[in-house]
Every structure is written in C-alpha cells, then in structure tokens.
Design a protein around this nucleic acid. Structure first.
Lengths: 189, 189
DNA sequence: ATCGCTTTTTACCAAATGGTAAATGTTTTC
DNA sequence: GAAAACATTTACCATTTGGTAAAAAGCGAT
C-alpha cells in the first residue's frame, strides 16, 4: 500500500486525510497466471497498481497475429487508461503473465477521488502521462534498431523480466519471430 | 488563433476572460525550412501550437544515425514537453521540415497561465497526455509490421505528409533505409 | 537553358530475418 | 515416474532488407 502512496505523491502533495481516503477506495485484486485484467471488446473495470507480478498488453493485428506491445511489472499502474476514463470498449487485452496482486480502483471509486480531492484530476492526468511517456520511451527505439540491438536493450531495460516472461512474448514485443530471437540468443553467447 | 482555442477547449471549459488571457500570452513564431524549433543539449524555449507547416522530431542513436521519431503538422502542439516543463536539457531536435508558423508560449508565459487559470494544470496535463497518446498510437504499430505494411499505414495515417516531407525522413521514421523505401514504392505501383 | 546541388531510384551482392518443420528441453498432470 | 502439453532451439531454404555505388530525376540560381 505504501508503494502506491509513494507513487502518487510524486505528482502532488496530499494530506493524511486525503491519503486515507485513497487507501479506503482501493480493492485488492489477485489474478492467476494467464487471467485477463481487461479484455478487448469490454469496458475496463479497473485501473490497477501492480504490487506483484507481470502483465503484458497485447492486441491482434490485421494478420491475426497476437502482438505484445508492452509489459508492466511491479509498482506501476496498469490499465487502458483512455478507455477506462471514458468507460469505452477496449481494443486490447491486458493479461497476467505470472500470478499477480494489484491494488485496483473501480471507475466509481476513481471518480470519487476526483470529486473529493481537489487536485486529483491533475494528479491522475500526470499518472497517465507518466505511463504513456514510459511506454513511448521503451517502444520507440524498437523501430529503428536491428533485432540484436533491440534484444540487448530489452535486457538492459528489463533485466528482471527475462526470467519471468515466455520468450515468445518477448519476441513478439521486439517485433521478431521466436526463431529469430532464439538464434540471436545463441549468437550472443 | 481560433484553432488553438478550439484545441484547448477540448479539455476543459474556459470563460472569455480566460481565453483572452491565453491569447495575450502567445508569441507568433515563424521558422524557415530546416530551422530548429528546439535542439538537443539545450533547454526548450517554447511550447508551440502549429498553425502552418510540418515539424519532425529526431535524435541520434548510438550508431550516430539520425532517427526521425515523429512528425507533427497543423493544429497540434509541438515541444519536448517533459523537458520544457522541467526546463531541462532536451535530448532531441525538433526541426521545421517546411516553412512553419506557430503560436508559441515561453516558459514564463506558460507558467502565468498556470498561476492565473485555476484549471490550467489539469488542462496542460491533458494536452501532454493527448500528444503522447497520439505519438504512441502512430509509433507502436511500426514495431511489429513488415516494411511494406508500415509504409502503407503511414500513407493512410498521414496522407498529406507524403508530399511535404523528404523520403529520407519518412524512411528513417519507418525504421528502414531510403533504398528499401524506394524499392517498396516501386513494387506497390 | 545550363550548371551545380540535392533527392530519389536502380542495381548488385551480402547479411538478416521469416516460415515451415522437426528435435530437444521443460513443466504440468495424473 | 510416465505421459502429455507446452516452450525453446535448431535446421533448412525463401524472402526481405541493408550497404555500397552509381545513375537518373528534380530543383534553384544564374
């Protein structure tokens, strides 16, 4: 719980009362490996803060291939924020890659924060901003590098993920086939 | 000027007085083709709203290659927002690809908006959020598609840009060489 | 129109990646 | 512990892309 508060306090000051109010609105959610946190074609129920585990966000491209477009692990928010805010149908899946534990907010509770904490909308926008900006920083370099460079920078940026995530997801994230990734791993040694 | 106001009003309501205040803080900036709006290693002077022209944002990767990582055209904000906000050194270049006209805000004027318009911080955060989210939507699909598909979806998403931007920039944006892009164009016809 | 400069296309070959299929390794289940 | 299911590696060849170099096309200034 303290990790969540710490995360939020990056973006603005809150008094103890406000902090308690936030705490009171959280729902603890546990998910088993492979469970969906949110699904394409459905309205996202929650925005969640990851206490334990790894999620991946993926969608199906026009060739029907499943593309992992980012991973989220401990102490970050996970959600299709735009669709959660608007309570609109999501176009992606967010799936637990390992067993996961989250502190989650329903839309109702999230709105309660907005209505109760004066500065909350700004803070919430900042949170979304950080999530997007992190995602962009990770994703963007993948476009212009060759596969080996992508894999190496993946290793640097997510040293812990390599042992927690199936290689096929990583290959998909890097935009290469699993066979290519396997070959690259062999050549690096 | 009305385009700017229209853009801002997407994110919150403002009274005529507040709108006039915003207008009073704008600086009109004209840039010639190839001029820099902001540079790596320098603190961004402005955040700008593009009235006319096309910008590209680029950086140099570790191989010394110049990578265009996004384009911005009319009626969007352009700036290295994170670095502008923090008045920190930017790590990228923002360059006019054509002659450009902007409505710009200095940090001082931008802060004045924050201090004068109660809801401004939230609105500003929403603007940044939109810029990032648009950039992500454009950039992300590039990772997992082959070069031809990337080019075709570029054409769909930016039909106007193809005639305003040198092909070498587009190739760099798509993560391929100029020769590959040329070959792809030939095969499509 | 011509020259000089930049942009785009072409050609060639080398290298990287994809697709199919099978073999090996690992984990789960009973 | 064996069988089944799943994950990863390997091998093969076809296809795509990169790198180098040169030709063609486009553009601006005189």
């Amino acid at each position: 719980m303290e990790k969540l508060i710490e995360y939020i306090l990056q973006f603005g000051n809150l008094n103890p009362q406000q902090i308690n109010f936030i705490k009171s609105k959280t729902t603890e959610v546990d998910l088993k490996k492979d469970d969906y946190f949110s699904e394409a074609g459905k309205v996202p129920k929650y925005i969640g803060f990851v206490l334990e585990g790894v999620f991946r966000c993926c969608y199906y491209n026009n060739k029907g291939e499943e593309i992992t477009h980012y991973f989220i692990d401990e102490y970050s928010f996970v959600s299709d924020q735009q669709k959660f805010e608007a309570q609109a149908l999501s176009s992606e899946y967010i799936q637990a890659v390992t067993d996961c534990k989250l502190l989650a907010f329903t839309k109702k509770d999230w709105d309660a924060l907005s209505n109760t904490i004066v500065d909350w909308d700004r803070i919430a926008a900042k949170i979304t901003q950080k999530c997007l900006s992190d995602a962009m920083d990770r994703r963007s370099p993948l476009v212009s590098e060759d596969a080996t460079t992508r894999y190496l920078s993946f290793l640097q940026k997510y040293p812990m993920l390599i042992n927690r995530v199936p290689l096929s997801y990583i290959a998909s994230y890097l935009g290469i086939t699993q066979q290519s990734l396997s070959r690259i791993r062999k050549n690096i040694r």
